[in-house]
Simulated assay, not measured.
Amino acid sequence: MPTSAKRRLASAGIACAAGAGALFAAAPDAAAIVKTQQTLDAAPTPVPTGTQVTFTGALTRLGDRPVAEQKVDLEWRGGADQPWSVSNSGTTDAAGKAAIPATVTVSAEWRISYHGDRVNDPAVSPVVGVRSQQPVGQRVVDSAAAQAGKPYSYGAAGPDRFDCSGLTQFVHKQVGIDLPRTSRDQRAALADVSKSDLKPGDLLFFADGGSVYHTGIFAGDGKMWAAPESGDVVRLQNIWTDAYTVGRAW
C-alpha cells in the first residue's frame, strides 16, 4: 500500500476512535463552528431619568434558527470612548428571544452580547442609543433655579428681570410649554391639582378674596422658586402659608 494511503487510514482511525466530543475537548481554543447573530430591538428615547426599559433581542444561528437557553448580557456605555459594562443578564427562550430590564439613569449606548460556546460563535448586537431626560416637572424647577439672583421688576418677563408670573411663564417656555402672561390667567388656564398630589414643577397660586396675587414653582421640601416683590430677586423661598391652590402645566 502506498505510504500516503497508510497515513490517511491511520488518521481516520484516530478520528473514529476519539469521537466528536473528544475532538472538541482536545482543542478548547479552536474557533466555534456555527455562526450566530445577536439582534437588539429599538428602544424608546428619550425617557425620563429613572425609567425602567426592557431591552429585547433574538439570538439565531444559520437559517435564522433560534439559539435557546443561552445566557446573554445587556451591556451599556456612556460614550464611544468608554468601556462596556454589564447592566443585567438574561436567558434566551425557546424562540431564541431575550427580554432584559434595565433602569436608565444616564444617556447611554446599549447592546446585547452573547459570549458563545464550543459550538456557537459569540455575537454582539447593533448598538441602540437611549437618551435620559429629567422629568418635565424637574426640568421646570431646574429652569427656575437657573434664574436665581435676577431682579424683580413689575411687568417683566425675562430674560434679565421678572415679576412672579413673568418668571413662571419664562421657565415653562424653556421646556416647551406656553402659559398665559398673568398669574390670574395662568390659574384660569390650568386645572386644579390636589395638594396630596403636589409634585416639583407644579405652580402654586396665592389668592386674596378670590383674586390671585402671587405665583411660584414648587421645588419640594416646603419651598418654591419665585420672584417675590420689588427690591427682591428670584430666589428659593419658604412656602409661608397653606392658603394656595395648585396647577400643573405638564
Rank of each mutant, 00 (worst) to 15 (best):
A144P: 01
A27F: 13
A144K: 00
T91V: 13
S194M: 07
F170N: 07
A95V: 00
A12H: 08
P122Y: 07
G21T: 11
G57A: 11
D73G: 02
T3H: 05
A189K: 11
A80G: 04
T245C: 07
A148V: 12
Q38Y: 01
T54N: 11
V104D: 07
A68L: 03
T182N: 05
W76P: 00
I217F: 03
A146F: 04
R184M: 11
F162P: 09
A42G: 12
E75A: 08
T182M: 08
V171H: 05
V127R: 04
A156K: 12
D41L: 04
L62R: 12
P46F: 07
I14L: 14
A145F: 07
I100N: 06
T215C: 14
A30P: 09
V140L: 09
V124D: 14
Q134D: 14
Y152P: 03
P159Y: 05
F162C: 10
D160Q: 09
A18G: 02
T56D: 06
A25V: 04
V47E: 09
G21I: 06
A32P: 15
G201P: 09
R248L: 05
L40N: 04
A99H: 03
Y244D: 11
A42Q: 14
S196A: 15
Y152K: 06
Q133W: 04
D117Y: 05
A123T: 03
A25P: 01
D192L: 07
G78S: 10
S107A: 11
A42F: 03
G216S: 08
D160P: 00
A99V: 03
G63H: 05
H115A: 15
R181C: 06
A22N: 11
T103P: 05
V119F: 10
A18C: 03
Q237L: 12
R8S: 13
I217Q: 11
D41A: 14
W84F: 02
R131F: 02
A5C: 01
L9C: 04
G231F: 01
S85A: 08
G90S: 13
A68W: 00
H214G: 13
G63E: 11
R65N: 13
S85G: 01
A43M: 14
R235Y: 00
A108K: 03
A123N: 06
T45C: 09
V104Y: 04
P151A: 10
N238I: 02
T60M: 03
A26G: 13
L9Y: 12
Q138G: 00
R184H: 09
G201L: 04
D29G: 08
Q134A: 15
V175C: 09
R181L: 08
W250V: 06
T49L: 05
P83S: 07
Q237S: 14
T36K: 02
P83E: 09
L204P: 06
S211T: 15
G155E: 01
V119M: 12
S183D: 15
C164Y: 05
V130T: 05
G210A: 10
V130N: 07
D208A: 14
T241Y: 03
K150D: 01
R111Y: 04
Q237N: 12
A25Q: 13
F55P: 10
D192S: 13
K173R: 15
A156Q: 04
D232C: 00
A95C: 00
D208P: 02
R139G: 05
A17R: 11
V53Q: 07
